[in-house]
Design a protein around this nucleic acid. Structure first.
Lengths: 326, 326
DNA sequence: ATGAAAGCGCTAACAA
DNA sequence: TTGTTAGCGCTTTCAT
């Protein structure tokens, strides 16, 4: 069923049907309008959006490339993106990169072939730069910032302030031996989180100890292993974690060894993923407005798609959520 | 940059370029092949997939409609789908329905307009039926089965056996007062899970008590509220939960009241979402092969897209994972 | 081994 | 108020 067939059934031209279907019906008689719409309804006609897109040169779909939707942080991000996109009439193609540059670049290529109107990206420095050089397409970098002169949007969070406040809280609560477990990625956000921790320590009277830092992945496993490692090498009465998953792993290791949280060791996470408040004990953490970040990203992306003049960078605030692990 | 421009630069026709780009180059001289490819590379040409799709009538993209990616169960499903799709050369458009029929139907329409090659659906009975009547498109129903004569694929799990085994385990472990907390949805899977529980109870010598059943949503909140409610109304020494989220909420309520799990009350979940093994205590549960279900769904979907003769229904086995809440 | 040309389903400028 | 028509970028048949 095509627009042409509808036109024939209605005894009008395809142009007329097209206008009606697209609401450009100011100078179309109510009679033919109704007639056409009835036929469309009766026949269950579904417009071919591909043909339309080819003609009008936009697809009303955006792509999002992220490491892994199964990770609670990213699934919340994805939801924020999808909800905001849907509200603005866009669909979203989801791509999981597992942080692999090869996948990131492959997906960027595929998304461009599919003529998405823009891409939201949580990816490595290299992929972004290389792709941007090849062909420009509206892009906003989400969560992970990247230095480039290209015109890309950025939505980030004040990571440094986050871990700074987290560590400060631990210090205020009386911790003297504070570990830091996080990711060893070379992303800005990882570096900033480490920096925030260091700043807080350096600023206090407790002395900085490299042995209290364990850097690996943003995973539960890292939290677990890191804690075990820290426990062996040094004494600890507080752990600042690079994200909530790490904190969950840390608490597990602690509990298994009969170490009480928060009495013996205090733990603080980062992100405030949805599960954190249900942990035992409920996790104290630095909240990122994850869902909102997703929303902001699509708002910004659509602005750049429409060539609107706007601020190309937005850094959102974190918030300390004190629950029961500190 | 279009295929035409590439053709001009190479001094050949668009037909030749097209053939080369699509590997239909058996009778194309190596010289022109190399020349064209070099130019494509040098110019950073990206084919317009929309134009291609319009011509060849497929988009190599599928849609998936599910209630909510933020729900751990669905995010794992989404990942399984995306991974399998990627392996077979498909992209996936993700849609969150929040179990709302209006959204389900809206998305089905949008996906059809975008000419996806097929749809994977976790949706209500009505939406599916209504949409199927309007226009046929390859579809596979995932996780939620629906009765219809239409030719749709189905991937499900043996829910009844799952809760039957779960309840049996509780009984074997000595529980005499077993509650059941689950969803009140009118889906087959929900009905089957209740049935499995009832069967196990009826089959045992402990008598069936309607007051020990609490039906609401598949959420942590329901688990919490349901447990509180059960505790008030009746005595309980075991809870069979409709999913892991409910189990997590139940355990939280129990712990808060100083009731020990598993000593005082045993709890068993359903799904084995990724977080369950990290709970405290690690959750005993009925494992669904979630990721594989996603994979199977796209395998089946692609088979129906290609009109392959195949089994249109597959029910996967659950597996009892005994950890420490029983 | 290569090319000409039709046509996929739609929109929009322009004509009537 | 409605219709004619070109053309979006590509593939593919059929010639050459």
């Amino acid at each position: 069923m095509t627009i042409k067939e509808i036109a024939e059934l209605a005894g009008v031209s395809t142009a007329t049907v097209s206008k009606i279907l697209n609401g450009k019906d100011k100078d179309i008689s109510e009679a033919t309008r109704k007639n056409v719409l009835d036929i469309v309804e009766r026949e269950g006609y579904i417009p071919n959006g591909i043909a339309k897109s080819l003609r009008i040169k936009n697809t009303k779909t955006i792509g999002i490339i992220m490491p892994d939707v199964m990770n609670l942080f990213f699934s919340e991000l994805a939801r924020g993106v999808e909800d905001a996109a849907e509200k603005k009439g866009y669909s979203v193609i989801l791509c999981n990169s597992d942080n692999k540059e090869s996948k990131e670049e492959k997906y960027i290529q595929i998304l461009q072939e599919k003529m998405v109107d823009g891409i939201i990206l949580t990816a490595s420095e290299n992929s972004v730069k290389r792709s941007l050089r090849r062909r420009k397409i509206p892009m906003v970098l989400l969560d992970r910032d990247i230095s480039t002169d290209e015109k890309v949007g950025r939505i980030t969070v004040d990571n440094e302030e986050g871990t700074y406040n987290a560590t400060k809280l631990l210090i205020e609560k009386g911790c003297k031996n504070i570990g830091f477990i996080s990711s060893n990625k070379t992303t800005k956000s990882s570096a900033q989180r480490l920096q925030g921790y260091e700043n807080a320590i350096l600023e206090s009277k407790i002395n900085f100890d490299k042995n209290k830092i364990f850097l690996q992945n943003y995973t539960i496993e890292t939290g677990y292993k890191g804690t075990v490692s820290l426990l062996e090498k040094t004494n600890i009465d507080g752990i600042c974690c690079g994200n909530d998953l790490i904190a969950i792993g840390a608490i597990k290791a602690l509990k298994e060894r009969g170490i009480k949280v928060p009495q013996d060791v205090k733990v603080i996470g980062f992100d405030d993923i949805s599960i954190s408040k249900y942990m035992d004990p409920p996790l104290t953490t630095i909240r990122q407005p994850i869902y909102e970040m997703g929303e902001e990203a699509v708002g910004m992306l659509i602005d750049v798609i429409n060539n609107k003049e706007m601020e190309m960078s937005k850094v959102l605030k974190t918030e300390l959520i004190v629950r029961e692990t500190t």
